[in-house]
Simulated scan of single mutants.
Amino acid sequence: MKKFTVIGNWKLNGNNNFVDKFIIKLKKYFLDNPIFYKIVLAPPLLYVHHFTSNIREKNFFIGAQNVDIHISGSFTGEISVDMLQDNGIKYVIIGHSERRKFHHESNEIIAKKFSLLKQRNMVPILCIGETLEEKKQNKTQLICSKQIDDILKYVGENAFKNSIIAYEPIWAIGSGYSATAREIQNINNFIKNYISDYSNVKRNEIITQYGGSVDDLNIEEFFMQDDIDGVLLGGASISLHKFIKILQLIHNLKI
């Protein structure tokens, strides 16, 4: 059976009323449908407790959208790896293009976050990808390999064991335009080969996903590709109808 992980990144969305309704519908879905794959949902941290105290499903996990590079101290507004772990969070998204762009996070900062998560036996979800201009210049592989290299240099050759790499071409995020399943298969194949060539992690241990305007209309195409081991959803994860439909489609495909 194909291993597959669905990750939902809510970004800066949600409120108490929305979360309560979402949980009710999600619990009902889990009661009616056994989950044979992993689901990781990353709401804003204020709503984490709503989920962890209401949903008990062995393949459902709550993730975080970010983490700080510091453990404690005078860093107003930040959240540490220890705080996340203390609240039962295992999966953490890092390196998202919005963090790189709007918060000026460098590859070095992202590598530090990756390292802290690995030290705590947590699972980093590393986002990598190129801009539209870089794609036009045929630099996709160059950009992705550079982002991977900086992790390997800082963390070491076992960095990508028990980790997730989410290929998220920046030009596809929230644009309504998605890369084709074949394009994603090719780049994910490249990522797996590259990491296995330059590290101690075997190819079959490497988990690569795709994120970028994935929804209920194209999820099946991505699922069928050999090297797409999951999807990182944005907008589709905060549409309860779309999210449930995506889960149902994956459920049917796995059966």
Rank of each mutant, 00 (worst) to 15 (best):
K2W: 02
K3P: 04
V6F: 15
W10A: 11
N16A: 03
N16F: 06
V19F: 00
V19I: 12
F22H: 11
K25H: 13
Y29N: 08
Y29C: 12
D32Q: 04
D32H: 00
P34L: 02
I35K: 02
K38T: 01
I39D: 15
L41R: 06
L41K: 02
A42C: 15
P44A: 09
Y47S: 03
S53F: 12
F60S: 03
Q65C: 00
D68G: 10
T76R: 08
V81I: 12
D82Q: 06
M83F: 03
M83W: 01
L84P: 03
L84M: 06
D86Y: 11
N87I: 07
N87E: 10
I89S: 03
I89Y: 03
K90Y: 13
I93P: 14
G95L: 03
G95V: 08
H96L: 00
H96T: 01
F102D: 13
S106Y: 02
M122V: 11
C127V: 07
T131G: 05
E133S: 02
E134W: 08
E134P: 07
K136Y: 07
N138M: 10
Q141F: 09
Q147P: 13
D149F: 10
L152T: 02
L152W: 05
K153S: 12
G156K: 09
N158F: 07
K161C: 14
I165E: 03
I165Q: 01
W171E: 10
G176C: 04
Y177E: 10
S178M: 04
N186M: 12
I187M: 06
I187Y: 12
N189R: 10
N189C: 04
I191T: 13
N200D: 10
V201W: 11
N204H: 14
N204V: 05
I206D: 08
G211M: 04
D215I: 00
D216S: 15
E220S: 10
E220D: 09
M224A: 12
Q225V: 01
I228V: 15
D229P: 09
G235I: 03
K242G: 08
F243N: 07
I244M: 11
I244P: 01
K245M: 07
Q248F: 14
L249F: 05
I250S: 01
N252G: 02
K254W: 01
